[in-house]
Design a protein around this nucleic acid. Sequence first.
DNA 1: TAAATAGTTGGCGCTACACAAACGATCCGT
DNA 2: ACGGATCGTTTGTGTAGCGCCAACTATTTA
Lengths: 160, 160
Amino acid sequence: MPAGPVDQTERRSGALLDHLARRMRLRSESVLAPLGLRPRHLVALTVLREAGGMSQQGLAGRLQLDGTNVVGLLNDLETAGLVERRRSPEDRRRHVVSLTQTGAKRLNEAECALASVEDEVLGALDPAERETLYDLLRRATSEVPPTCAEAAGNDPDSLC
Amino acid sequence: MPAGPVDQTERRSGALLDHLARRMRLRSESVLAPLGLRPRHLVALTVLREAGGMSQQGLAGRLQLDGTNVVGLLNDLETAGLVERRRSPEDRRRHVVSLTQTGAKRLNEAECALASVEDEVLGALDPAERETLYDLLRRATSEVPPTCAEAAGNDPDSLC
DNA sequence: TAAATAGTTGGCGCTACACAAACGATCCGT
DNA sequence: ACGGATCGTTTGTGTAGCGCCAACTATTTA
């Protein structure tokens, strides 16, 4: 086989995302626990803040979680007063879930508290690079994942 | 309260990392399964390839896993012929773990197969941005997390 | 030579899921 | 008006991925 470049590894982000996310999560837990939060709560609160309010089905889609798991997650957050469920006037079967003021404040507190975690876990990156990372992650996650029907039609390897 | 900027949210990457990593993982599983791999295998193989060979303790440190869980993880990979454990000539208590040729090849195959997953999950980013994301993740994860002693000395919030 | 270290095995427990079934309330199409 | 579909809830089962512990063997160290 002809010799190629020394580094022939494919440049994939998946393993690195898992790796970095795990480190961040481990470091975060001790900071979040006093606030009554777990990393999965943080993800849900972040998505809800950005969306301004959404159905449970919508949230399940965004988080790629089974609906029954979203129910449990929201039960935690609602019990803590961080979110509220309101019946949709358009369809009273449906809840619209949104952050309470308490929830918005708690999320902000959590993010402030996580500054030291990010300083540590992202210590190899300078502030501009951290900003770039944040921006790339935000834009990558803001794209709504395709629905099952869309994905199944387009991609046989899809989960659906 | 005086009115502030509209967006006063802290710019933290933790929740977004979890969110994106989860999406990537879900999409990856169907691609990795035919190769006999799970996402946690991929992380370990990636770390081992980069390190060229390391002790189990070293790997446990890099992955921030309990040593007994690294034993189980390596048992999977060794059984599949993807890694080998060799006694260190310097200290025969210790194993040096490295990728086999089969393992290096399988990892490359996995990364090729994951191209479509990354196209989908990172669809909102253009190729240059994906390259930037990869680079930032790689550099952030390459910094070895501090040992417990180091972290405990410097940071009371540390996990240790 | 005793204590410490590296790794292994087996076990227990927890969290975070996936998935299924059954149900009540509500909406929609016929 | 009614049956089917939808939204959400509860309960239950199971799996994966861990953390942590104890006990052990082999080896190194002081």
